[in-house]
């Protein structure tokens, strides 16, 4: 394993860590690294850094590594980590905050998750509602997983779960405006 030279941590990284923490409403120095979060994390098996280690990177200011980690994109937002943290650190909020910061910087360590969420929000912006069939089909197309769940599709159609009808709100313009306005703030809340 490479040596991490902590003296190479830049001020920009430390400031970014502060910003990420602020957006998450978390003080990373509250964490005493007990690992209860990661012990109960259902997705830890798929992560490159377990949630505790993501917090550790942020504690030390190794922010670029955290932003390039897959973990925040693998996180299922089940919130079990935050619910059990003895120190009240909202780890889920941290994962979200890291992921949004990475996205703002154009990083996407997990292509699939990013494509899915972009399609989802695009869908909502256009129709005001999520159309699961469009979502799945478009995802398969853009992600290259062409055959994923195709075997289930006819069954879903037969059960009336998916159909040719596109669900949408009446006032599509209002939702579009609302989405654009929310996104225009660049992640700053107030």
């Amino acid at each position: 394993m490479d040596t991490t030279n902590l003296s190479n941590v830049t001020n920009a990284e430390l400031e970014a860590a502060d910003r990420i923490g602020k957006e998450a409403g978390v003080r990373f120095d509250d964490c005493y690294q007990c690992g209860k979060c990661s012990a109960g994390c259902p997705m830890a098996h798929a992560m490159d850094y377990v949630p505790r280690q993501v917090i550790r990177l942020l504690q030390l200011g190794i922010v670029d590594e955290a932003l390039n980690a897959k973990s925040p994109w693998i996180c299922a937002h089940c919130m079990v980590c935050s619910a059990r943290c003895p120190q009240g650190v909202d780890i889920t909020a941290t994962m979200l905050s890291v992921r949004r910061e990475a996205k703002r910087r154009g990083l996407r360590p997990d292509k699939e998750a990013d494509i899915f969420d972009d399609i989802f929000i695009g869908n909502v912006r256009s129709f005001g509602k999520s159309n699961e069939a469009i979502l799945a089909a478009k995802y398969n197309l853009l992600s290259g997983h062409l055959m994923q769940d195709m075997l289930n599709a006819p069954k879903m159609a037969a059960r009336g779960m998916i159909g040719p009808k596109i669900h949408s709100v009446k006032d599509k313009e209002a939702v579009k405006k609302l989405v654009d306005k929310a996104l225009s703030k660049g992640g700053e809340q107030k």
Partner: peptide, 12 residues
């Protein structure tokens, strides 16, 4: 009992 061995960095 589900824990993390934080020295190992993996779930145990």
């Amino acid at each position: 009992c589900k824990g993390e061995d934080t020295l190992l960095g993996s779930q145990v």
